[in-house]
Design a protein around this nucleic acid. Structure first.
Lengths: 236, 236
DNA sequence: TGAGGACTGTCGGCGAGCCGACAGTCCTCA
DNA sequence: TGAGGACTGTCGGCTCGCCGACAGTCCTCA
C-alpha cells in the first residue's frame, strides 16, 4: 500500500495503516527465536546496543534487515518532525522487518529506540543466507510467519461484530505491560489501533473508569480489575 | 479459534470466521507454484483428478496435506448436511491447506469438488520433506505466506473506515470470475465475507443495480460497468 | 410435478459510532 | 518559568448499519 507511505503529517489513514501493521509484528510465542537455534543464528546475528533515539529503520525505506528486541523498548512511529505519532511499541522478544524484507517492500513506520536498547540484528544479505543455509530455521520462520497470518485473521474475527467495549478490553489486555498492568499510549493511538474515533474510545474508557475497572491518566491507563476486563472482552 | 469449529448448523460467527479465512487462501500471484519449481516439486506432488463432490478435506480434521487447484472449481463450506453453506470458491492456481499444516491446526471449512477437479496434492509428510530438502522452495513458500499475511492486513485496512458500498465494490471486483464478470454466490455468503448484515448488503446491491452498474439474479451478480465499480471501490 | 426449503427484496425502529468542535489540563522545551 | 503544543473529557447532530420480520420468488429433490 504505497499510497499510505511517505506522509509528512500522520493523516488518519496512514495512522490506522501503521497501527494495524504494527500490531502484527511477531510477538512472544510466534517469535522464531528458540534457544536451540541460537548456535546456528549466532553466525548471522549481530548483537547491537543502541543509544536512546537511534533509528532502527525508516518508513518508506527498504528494510535493511531483521531486528529482534533483546532488552529495552523501541517505538514504531508514523509521520516526521514534531507531528510524529507512536503507533506501537516493541518489547523484548519481538521481531520486525522480516516480512518487509521477504516481500521487498518498505515498512510503513519508523522504528526508534526509546531508551537504550539491546537487539539482535540480521542484515538483509545474512538473513537471506541464513534461510538458505539452515532449512530448520527457514522452517521455523515459515511457521512464525504462518502464525502471524492466522493471528491477523483472528484479529479480524475478533473485530467483526464485536462491540467497541469488547475490542477495547481485548486491546488493553494484550497491550498492557504485564509488570505494571499499565498501557502507556495516548488514547489517539489506541483509537487508531482499533480503527475508531478517539472520542468514541474515550467514552468507553470513561465508562470503564467509572466502573472501577481501570484508571485513566495522562498518556496512561492502569488496569485495576483484570477479571472484569476479561469479562468485557469475552462477553457481548 | 477452536470454538468456531465443529458446528452443525453454520451460525453467523462460524460463517464469518470461515468466510474470512477462506478469502486468505493463496491466490494467483502469491501462489508458490512457478514453472522452475515443478521439477523439484514433481517428486512430492501427486496430480489427482477428483470426481464431482469429492471432499478434499473436512473442517475440524487435521489437514492431510496441501492442495493446489489445477483445473476446475472447489467450494469451501461450513456446516454439515442440508444446512451447508459455501463461503468461497477455489479456482485454478489457488493453494490451500498449507498454513493449517504448518501450524498443526484444522481448517475451519470443508473443501469439496464442485465439478470434476484436477489438483496437485502434497501429503503432509511430503510437504514436510519438501520444505526440508529444498531450501529454495521453502524460501518461496515463505514469501508466499508472508504475502498472504500482508494481504490479509491490507484487507483489514481496506475495511477500516470504508463505507459498505466501497467494501462491496472491492469484494465484487476481486471475487468475480474474470471470464464472465459474474459472482455466483448467494448474498448471504457475500455478506458474511464482509461481516455485515445481509439486508444491509442487499440495499447496496439494489442501489448499484438501479445505477446500472450490475445486474442481480438468483445467486448471481453480473458486473456490467467495471469503471463505475472501480470508482465506488476507491472513492469514498 | 408438487412441496418444502433457500434466497431475494423490503421495511422500520433503534443504537453505535462518526465527526467537528471546544474548553480545560498536562507536558515540554526554549 | 512562560508559552505553545499535545492530550483528555465532553457534547450534539447525524448517518450507517444492525436486527427482526415477512412476503414473494426461485430451486431442488422426492
Amino acid at each position: 500500500m504505497p499510497e499510505l507511505l511517505g506522509l509528512r503529517a500522520p493523516d488518519p489513514m496512514a495512522l490506522r495503516a501503521a497501527a494495524w501493521m504494527a500490531r502484527c509484528v511477531g510477538r512472544g510465542d510466534s517469535a522464531p527465536l528458540h534457544p536451540d537455534d541460537l548456535t546456528a543464528l549466532s553466525r548471522y546475528v549481530q548483537p547491537q546496543t543502541l543509544k536512546a533515539g537511534t533509528v532502527l529503520f525508516h518508513a518508506c525505506t527498504a528494510s535493511a534487515g531483521v531486528w529482534i528486541i533483546r532488552n529495552g523498548t523501541a517505538e514504531l512511529t508514523v509521520g516526521t518532525g514534531p507531528r510524529r505519532v507512536a503507533v506501537a511499541l516493541l518489547h523484548p522478544g519481538d521481531v520486525d522487518g522480516d516480512i518487509q524484507l521477504l516481500l521487498d517492500m518498505p515498512p510503513p513506520y519508523t522504528a526508534r529506540a526509546v531508551g537504550d536498547l539491546d537487539t539482535y540484528f540480521i542484515p538483509a544479505a545474512a538473513f537471506d543466507a541464513l534461510l538458505g543455509a539452515h532449512p530448520a530455521i527457514a522452517r521455523r520462520w515459515l511457521t512464525s510467519v504462518a502464525a502471524r497470518t492466522t493471528s491477523s485473521q483472528t484479529r479480524i474475527m475478533d473485530l467483526l461484530g464485536a462491540t467497541l467495549t469488547q475490542q477495547t478490553a481485548r486491546l488493553l489486555l494484550t497491550e498492557a505491560d504485564p509488570a505494571t498492568s499499565t498501557v502507556r499510549l495516548p488514547q489517539r493511538v489506541l483509537a487508531a489501533m482499533l480503527g475508531v474515533q478517539r472520542s468514541s474510545l474515550n467514552k468507553v474508557l470513561r465508562d470503564l473508569e467509572r466502573e472501577g475497572t481501570l484508571e485513566l491518566g495522562y498518556r496512561t491507563i492502569r488496569l485495576l480489575d483484570h477479571k472484569t476486563l476479561d469479562r468485557h472482552a469475552s462477553r457481548a
